[in-house]
């Protein structure tokens, strides 16, 4: 077996040796599974934040992760983007395994867009410059192309008229929509959302959620850490509940909300839904 095949094998969830015919099937499966996480463990010093996480995300799937604070949900998606290093287990994104190899880290970061709770727009650049920076310097696009693309996405998040302003001049909701557009400009395969509405005033949450729903309907693969249960109901293909660094339960939204299996999930839902 060649090294390439070995590598491939390591990346597929189902790794039993098969005759050549089924390699094709494996390949399609690998492509279908955009993100594969196996046996992921992470510690902060002595503190075990992520415990034996297994998670596969198919292309086009929308996943909502919820759970009490400190349950490791943000850490999980930050690991996918290599903002946090993990100590055990494997993460494979679109066929690229997240190792120490900087080339792979670069590739993955190019494929994965991230939206932060605190927006993290670059305050010294205009909205347009925020959106074109990475396409120009990472994707090596021409400024003209990058700006054209950026304007398209800014239109889609409904703020094309703000393009020449600076982030500080925009409301929180507008800034978060810019942050979404900025990530989209890199044409990512998958978008990660880290509590995108938590830092927003209530009246601005909807404008951001609308953009996210639209994105979901267009078929973007999404992993969202959020407490917006309404959003989870409308959009999610699967809802994951995490507590104490583990995945406690995962199910389609109707099942998850209507008859949660574990007691902890029930308790959590009780607190989140009846306030």
């Amino acid at each position: 077996m060649s090294e390439a095949e070995l590598q491939q094998k390591a990346t597929t969830a189902d790794s039993a040796a098969k005759p050549t015919v089924s390699i094709e099937r494996e390949l399609t499966q690998a492509q279908a599974n955009l993100i594969e996480i196996n046996g992921l463990n992470k510690w902060y010093g002595q503190f075990h934040v992520l415990r034996d996480i297994d998670l596969n995300v198919r292309k086009g799937e929308k996943i909502v992760i919820c759970g009490p604070s400190g349950s490791g949900k943000s850490t999980l998606i930050r690991c996918i983007n290599c903002l946090e290093e993990h100590q055990q287990g494997s993460i494979v994104v679109d066929g690229t395994r997240l190792t120490n190899d900087l080339k792979n880290i670069e590739t993955i970061r190019r494929e994965v867009g991230m939206v932060f709770q605190q927006f993290n727009l670059f305050p010294h650049l205009t909205i347009l410059e925020n959106c074109t920076l990475a396409p120009i310097w990472v994707r090596k696009q021409s400024r003209k192309d990058a700006e054209k693309l950026a304007m398209e996405y800014l239109e889609r998040v409904r703020i094309p008229d703000q393009a020449l302003k600076y982030p500080g001049q925009l409301s929180g909701g507008q800034q978060q929509r810019v942050a979404i557009a900025r990530s989209l400009c890199m044409n990512p395969e998958v978008m990660l959302f880290d509590e995108p509405t938590s830092a927003l005033d209530p009246e601005m949450i909807k404008e951001v959620l609308d953009v996210m729903i639209e994105l979901a309907q267009e078929g973007m693969t999404m992993i969202c850490v959020t407490h917006e249960m309404g959003f989870a109901r409308t959009v999610a293909d699967r809802v994951i509940f995490m507590d104490e660094g583990q995945i406690i339960e995962q199910a389609p939204p109707e099942e998850f909300f209507n008859n949660p299996r574990s007691e902890r999930t029930q308790k959590f839902l009780g607190q989140v839904l009846n306030h």
């Binding site: 670069e106 994965v112 991230m114 993290n120 670059f122 990472v138 900025r182 890199m186």
Partner: peptide, 27 residues
Amino acid sequence: IPKGQFEAFDSLGLSYWQGMIMIVLPQ
């Protein structure tokens, strides 16, 4: 400079020096 700025340029795929020169140092 807030940590989020470093994370933002990391997640966009910019390298250390690109991020420093274009994002962190100007601010």
